[in-house]
Amino acid sequence: MKLKLHVWRQKDRQSTGRMVAYDAPNVNPEMSFLEMLDVVNEDLTGKGEDPIAFDHDCREGICGSCSMVINGVPHGPSKGTTVCQLHMRHFTDGQDVHIEPWRAKAFPVLQDLVVDRSAFDRIIQAGGFISVNSGSAQDANNLPVAKADADHSMDAAACIGCGACVAACKNSAAMLFAAAKISHLGLLPQGQPERRRRAINMVKQMDLEGFGNCSNQYECEAVCPKEISVGFIARMNRDYLSSSIFSKETGSTSKSED
């Protein structure tokens, strides 16, 4: 089948970009979306035009690298799927396909469809961990964890940090990402000692990075390739508010973005 692509092209961080149209004449329905772009890029290179830059790595839906908005939806039309596992059988011959990068102030475009997501790393640095040095742990089975809690924690831990939640949110909010980490650790007994501090510090860093606020529209959950529940955002709100208002924890002084 044939497709008409409209792709955001931007030379570098400083340049202004624009949408450019390309034909994708030989699309096999069994291809993945990224393989379709590979073929387009081979053609472009043959013609002496710069290929379209996009982040990708594992191509099996777990590394969280791939990041593009397809016809207005992060990761495209299939539910619970990353772009790398989106197959062309979900498109129809002659369709117009608009491909844009994640758009958020906190995710500046580096080139074409490639954005800088280091803000997520800084949110984790602010508290997305359990402080336990290597070698200091007790025997793993000394700490039973109810299966339901472990499973619930795992539901949150499934986040691959791709940033689709930010891309989908009309406010470019990172609530689902932050909530997933706060809940993953907060649901486990190991995560309790730092639970309050974690919530305060991670939210503070998230705000500093320039992400927007939550309007409870749940677009994030709708596009999340791991289908992480917005219930975790409620949980984060609860953790944050109770920590801020009722505990002695004030959080650490924030680190500025370098």
Binding site: S134, D139, N141, A150, G191
Partner: peptide, 22 residues
């Protein structure tokens, strides 16, 4: 054996039995 201890302490949500053990 130390690896499993370390990972559990870090909050790796390994699969568990109903009794709470790994």
């Amino acid at each position: 054996v130390n690896i499993i201890d370390q990972c559990v302490a870090q909050g790796v949500p390994f699969a568990r039995e109903y009794g709470g053990l790994l």
